[in-house]
Amino acid sequence: MVFAFVRLALVAFVVMTLAYVGISIWSRQVRRRKLKRAWEEEGRPGDRADYVERGLDDYDDSLRRKLILLIYILPVVIVGFIIYLVNFM
């Protein structure tokens, strides 16, 4: 029981961490690309690197970035729900 549970937890943790890191990097890149485009559309105000850096700082504090944490939360909630559904309902 303990061994099977630990095995599942470890595998799930590794997979979720890979997904979390991957999606974090991808999302930051998307944000960076959008900021560069926005900088050009706004008539190139000031230095482009500064503009992008400031935008990414805003992104770091945003809810959108914290939503990526759902990668860890959702599977655990789903498994808990299945356990309740199959065994206790």
């Binding site: 029981m1 099977a4 549970f5 299945i82 356990i83 199959v86 065994n87």
Partner: peptide, 12 residues
């Protein structure tokens, strides 16, 4: 099925 495959998590 326990904690294994397929993921039914059946203990009852």
């Amino acid at each position: 099925t326990g904690w294994g495959w397929p993921p039914y998590f059946k203990f009852d």
